[in-house]
Simulated scan of single mutants.
Amino acid sequence: MKLSDYVVECVRRAGVRHVFLVPGGGAMHLNDSLGKSELRLVHNLHEQASAIACEAYAKVTDGLGAAFVTTGPGGTNAVTGVAGAWLDSTPTVFVSGQVKRADLKGNTGVRSVGAQEVDIVSIVKSITKYALTITEPESIRYHMEKALHLASSGRPGPVWIDVPLDVQAAKIDPETQRGFDPAELGAPANRRELERQVAETIRFLEKSERPILLLGNGVRLGRGQREMRKVIGQLGIPVLLTWLGIDLLPDDHPLYAGRPGAVAPRGANFAVQNSDFLLS
Rank of each mutant, 00 (worst) to 15 (best):
G224L: 02
T108Y: 14
R220F: 04
A53T: 08
E206N: 08
G245E: 10
V219D: 11
K100N: 05
L249E: 11
N217H: 14
Y57E: 05
G261V: 00
L148W: 02
W160G: 02
D62R: 15
K129Q: 04
V121C: 05
G63W: 07
I127F: 14
R40T: 03
L249F: 12
F68Q: 01
R196Q: 13
G157N: 10
V8D: 03
G75W: 08
R111K: 09
G236S: 09
T201D: 03
G26W: 14
M28L: 15
G224C: 02
R178S: 07
Q273W: 13
G261R: 08
N269Y: 13
L278F: 09
A66T: 00
K2S: 02
K171L: 07
G224E: 03
G233H: 08
E193L: 14
L278S: 06
R210P: 00
R191I: 12
E175I: 10
P265S: 03
G74S: 08
K100W: 01
E9K: 14
T133W: 13
P211E: 03
E9F: 02
V110E: 13
M28G: 06
Q168F: 15
H29Q: 14
T61H: 04
R203P: 00
P158R: 04
S50F: 06
E9R: 14
L148K: 00
E9M: 05
L104M: 13
H46E: 05
S4P: 02
A85W: 11
I212D: 00
G157K: 13
D62F: 04
H43N: 11
V19D: 13
G106Y: 13
R220M: 07
T80M: 07
Q177R: 11
V19M: 11
I134R: 13
R226T: 09
G25C: 10
I202G: 02
G233V: 06
E145G: 03
A51L: 09
R155C: 05
A56K: 08
E9T: 04
D173V: 05
P188W: 08
M228P: 00
N190S: 08
V118D: 06
V263S: 10
A264I: 05
V16R: 10
E209V: 08
E195I: 06
V163P: 01
S139I: 02
N269R: 12
Q116R: 05
I232F: 02
A189G: 12
A27W: 10
I123E: 03
G74K: 11
R40C: 01
P254N: 04
F270A: 07
G258P: 11
T133E: 13
S33P: 01
A66G: 01
D119Y: 06
R13P: 00
T176Y: 03
R210I: 06
D162T: 05
A58D: 10
S208E: 11
E209A: 14
D32I: 11
P260R: 09
I52E: 15
P238I: 03
P250A: 15
L132H: 05
G63K: 07
L255G: 06
R223N: 10
K207H: 07
G222K: 09
G72Q: 09
G97P: 08
H43P: 00
R12F: 00
L104F: 07
A78N: 09
A115L: 15
I52M: 15
Q98Y: 13
F277D: 02
T128H: 07
A58V: 12
